[in-house]
């Protein structure tokens, strides 16, 4: 046992992903960094709860999201937006080229409920399986699937996309401006 590598040496490699997940949940970098710090301290102290050979990132994300929801309960305020109050007036039609800018997408994403942002990051962005996400979120696999489906639908709705319009954002910020500038020069 004494010669086994310390899994805690690996913690730092997960910090960038933990921060991205925390920012997605908290929508605030200061709070996000506090969540990451708290999760790292807990992970360090509770490393015996990590089973070597299993997915450390999933384990860390579980600690982090539990910290987030615990804080939310403590604050006794609903950070989420199940009724779409924050989202009112957010939906704007995409630009004339039919493509969304990063800012449009981020704004719509931030208007989702905490649970919807969480499931989309875990499944859509991080690429965890529904089974892994179910374990991390402490819900049934079917719940993860239906929640992810509703979250995507809500996001599309918030982006104000009509049927047949591309939901894909510009590959690089500034592309649209560059295209507009080029068009102006050509015209």
């Amino acid at each position: 046992m004494t010669h086994a590598p310390d899994p805690r040496d690996e913690l730092i490699t997960h910090v960038p992903a933990m921060r991205a997940f925390a920012i997605s949940l908290a929508r605030d970098t200061t709070l996000a960094d506090d969540l990451v710090q708290d999760a790292l301290v807990r992970a360090w102290a509770g490393i015996d709860g990590f089973r070597p050979g299993t997915n450390m990132r999933a384990w860390l994300f579980t600690i982090l999201r539990n910290g987030f929801y615990s804080l939310r309960r403590k604050r006794r305020r609903e950070v989420g937006d199940p009724d779409g109050i924050h989202a009112a007036g957010l939906a704007e039609a995409p630009g004339h080229d039919g493509r969304l800018a990063y800012a449009d997408f981020e704004r719509a994403f931030h208007a989702l409920s905490d649970e919807h942002r969480e499931v989309l990051v875990l499944i859509g962005a991080e690429g965890f399986s529904c089974e892994e996400a179910a374990q991390m979120m402490g819900v049934a696999v079917g719940t993860v699937k239906s929640r992810a489906s509703r979250a995507r639908a809500r996001l599309a709705e918030l982006m104000g996309l009509g049927k047949g319009e591309s939901a894909l954002i510009d590959s690089e910020p500034g592309t649209r401006a560059a295209i507009a500038a080029a068009a102006a020069r050509a015209g």
């Binding site: 730092i12 991205a20 960094d33 710090q37 990051v121 859509g124 962005a125 991080e126 939901a167 954002i169």
Partner: peptide
């Protein structure tokens, strides 16, 4: 669905690629 996930990956990867802050 694919386009939304693609957007998520793009936006998310911009958050992930940052350096580890000194604090951590």
């Amino acid at each position: 669905r694919d386009e939304i996930d693609e957007n998520l990956k793009r936006v998310y990867s911009r958050l992930v690629e940052e350096e580890v802050p000194d604090r951590f």
